[in-house]
Amino acid sequence: MTYLLLFYEYFKTGLFAVGGGMATLPFLYDMSARHPDWFTTAQIADMLAVSESTPGPIGVNMATYVGFQVGGVLGAVIATIGLITPSIIVILIIAAFLRSFRDSRIVQSVFYGLRPASAAMVAAAGLSVAAVALLNSGAAGLALVNWKAVALAAVLLVLTRWVKPTKGLHPILFILASAVVGVVFSF
């Protein structure tokens, strides 16, 4: 039964997450809210980090990880197949009339509205991760902010966006460096 549910959840994700692997993130939050026994929101951030640092497209890695978390290797296979089934169907249909799809005004209009929405949902998911990573739960006032974490975030932001020599580096390097900082300064 769990496997069926897992397939259904991931089929939905594959069908409605538009804009690549990161766009599946809001669906994971939705999933953990409705199936609290599957995984916690804190685990989502960890799964995302592992998915980003291992070979394979990030969306597929996250599906595999979530599936494994819920139901072992079989769960991993089922979640991944759930994720890719809508893609295969949709793309095979589009491939049949590629040109008219691309030039269709109605399709362009739909995506005109969809892209900002997708960006907004990923942003909201990012804020949920930030709440776990940058704030101390159960505290108030200035103690609420985890200053060590905020300082690390600021440094990472500068290094990934503005410092020329580090800007183009692979995310895995930043993830590894953050893990080391986390251990050394006991986050």
Binding site: M22, A42, D46, A49, A153, L157, T160, F187
Partner: peptide, 12 residues
């Protein structure tokens, strides 16, 4: 992982 989560925020 607490350190990694901070990095994930920035990546998102």
């Amino acid at each position: 992982f607490a350190g990694i989560r901070v990095c994930v925020c920035v990546l998102i």
